[in-house]
């Protein structure tokens, strides 16, 4: 596999950076590839626009910047507007359908109500992990097993089961809709 670039975006407090971290960790530690994550966020830790960029490759990664992503995850309208301009036609876009109005129809755009599903599970904070499950099901950037291991080793032990359930919820939706 040559270089693959992923951008996860939304606003501070949604777990965007953690999502990028989990994708990178799944690739680097559990899929045994190279992965580089960088992040961009404003001075405010909650509410401001933020994004995580992950570059994954079987070769050495020199340039850490994402310039032609294969996958963009947008968890807010602002993020969608900012990060879905000038994309390659083959780029997969994943959105939370309650938080993002995509406007014109696009190929390879997939939506789930991640936040609403998380509320149904009784934990709004796992919306990002539901989205990660959807991401794992809709793309082949990282393996499902690696993602589950990365989640398990990145969240507090007492919340591991909840997060894995959230992940599987998103994954199952992606596979069912395919």
């Amino acid at each position: 596999m040559a270089r693959t670039e992923v951008r996860v975006s939304g606003f501070g407090g949604q777990g965007i950076i953690l999502s990028g971290y989990i994708i990178g960790k799944a690739a680097a530690i559990f899929d045994k590839k190279n992965a580089t994550m960088t992040q961009a966020y404003g001075p405010e830790s909650r509410g401001g626009a933020c994004s995580a960029q992950v570059v994954i490759s079987e070769e050495e990664i020199n340039d850490p910047e994402v310039s032609a992503p294969s996958v963009v995850v947008a968890m807010s309208q602002e993020a969608f507007t900012t990060f879905t301009k000038d994309l390659d036609p083959g780029c997969t876009i994943l959105i939370d359908e309650d938080l993002v109005q995509p406007g014109a129809s696009r190929d390879k755009l997939f939506a789930i109500p991640a936040m609403r599903l998380a509320e149904e599970m009784g934990k709004k904070v796992v919306a990002n992990i539901i989205m990660l499950g959807f991401f794992a099901g809709k793309t082949d950037v990282v393996s499902r097993e690696a993602m589950e291991q990365a989640i398990q080793s990145s969240v507090p032990a007492r919340f591991a089961e909840l997060n894995l359930q959230a992940f599987r919820r998103g994954y199952d939706l992606a596979v069912a809709a395919a």
């Binding site: 971290y21 990178g24 680097a28 530690i29 190279n34 992965a35 580089t36 994550m37 960088t38 992040q39 990664i61 850490p64």
Partner: peptide, 9 residues
Amino acid sequence: EVVGHMTEK
């Protein structure tokens, strides 16, 4: 800053 904040294995 980029190396300091960059996450890798």
